[in-house]
Computed example of a mutant assay.
Amino acid sequence: MWTVMPSPIGDLRIVERDGSIVAIEFSPFNQPADGRPLGSRSDDDPVLVETVRQLTAYFDRELTDFDLPLAPVGTDFQRRVWTQLEKIAYGETASYGEIAGRLGMTNAASRAVGLANGRNPIPIVVPCHRVIGANGTLTGYAGGLERKQQLLELEQDALF
């Protein structure tokens, strides 16, 4: 099942399967990456309603930590990277190299971390926007660099 919610960074499509969130997609929406059908739209499914509530609170600067059932689909390595992303605190950032180090890998694994980061199917909740280049620059983001900057600014502004 899925629903769509408006947000300051454009409409978001939230996809639920078996009681867990499997994707949050930026508009314009594409077909599901894993090729499975989305199912029907449901604006009253409890998991989707709660996800919309928490995302709305996040955008209103009232929520800094999400508490949602997540089931991202990916390789073992990708899931390990995504787990590390969830440990980056609200308003903080980390470099691709730092994430590689947290995984027990050398800085040479930064590129692999970047590729896994870019395949994160649940952006915002799994905060891939908090990963930046080693020199502090904003680097690729599936939703576009403008959205990445907006999300980082939202979190920074909320801290002050």
Rank of each mutant, 00 (worst) to 15 (best):
E153K: 11
E155L: 03
G101I: 02
T137R: 15
R80F: 01
G114Y: 03
S110A: 15
A108R: 14
L151A: 03
P121C: 11
E92G: 02
G140T: 11
A89G: 12
P123G: 07
A142F: 05
E155A: 03
A108I: 04
P123E: 07
A158Y: 12
G136T: 07
G140D: 04
T139Q: 13
Y141N: 09
F77K: 14
L115C: 08
Q84R: 14
M105V: 00
H129V: 06
N135C: 04
V125E: 08
A109M: 07
W82T: 00
K148I: 01
E92L: 02
G136M: 04
G97K: 09
A116C: 05
E153H: 08
V125I: 15
T75E: 05
A112G: 06
E153V: 10
A142P: 08
P123H: 06
L145V: 09
L151S: 04
P121M: 12
T93A: 13
T139E: 13
C128P: 00
R102G: 08
T139N: 13
G118I: 00
T106N: 09
F77A: 10
A134S: 10
C128N: 10
T137V: 14
Q150Y: 07
L85M: 06
I88K: 05
R79Q: 14
A89Q: 11
G143D: 07
Q149L: 14
E153Y: 03
Y141M: 05
R80V: 01
Q78P: 00
A142V: 11
A89M: 07
Q149H: 15
A158G: 11
L152K: 04
R102M: 11
E86T: 12
G118A: 13
N135T: 12
E155Q: 15
E155D: 05
N107E: 10
E155N: 09
G91N: 06
I132A: 03
L151R: 03
W82Q: 06
K148A: 07
A142W: 06
R130E: 02
V81A: 07
L145Q: 10
K148H: 02
P123Y: 01
A134I: 04
Q156M: 03
T75Y: 03
R79K: 15
I132K: 02
V126Y: 05
K148N: 04
T93P: 11
Y96F: 15
I124S: 07
A109L: 00
R147K: 14
T106D: 13
A112I: 01
R147A: 13
R147M: 02
R147N: 12
A100L: 00
V81K: 09
V113A: 06
L154C: 09
P123T: 09
N117I: 01
G133Y: 05
A158I: 08
G118Q: 11
A158F: 09
G74W: 01
E146A: 15
V81R: 08
E153D: 14
E153N: 13
V125F: 08
A108S: 14
Y90R: 04
I99R: 00
A158W: 11
I99A: 02
T93Y: 10
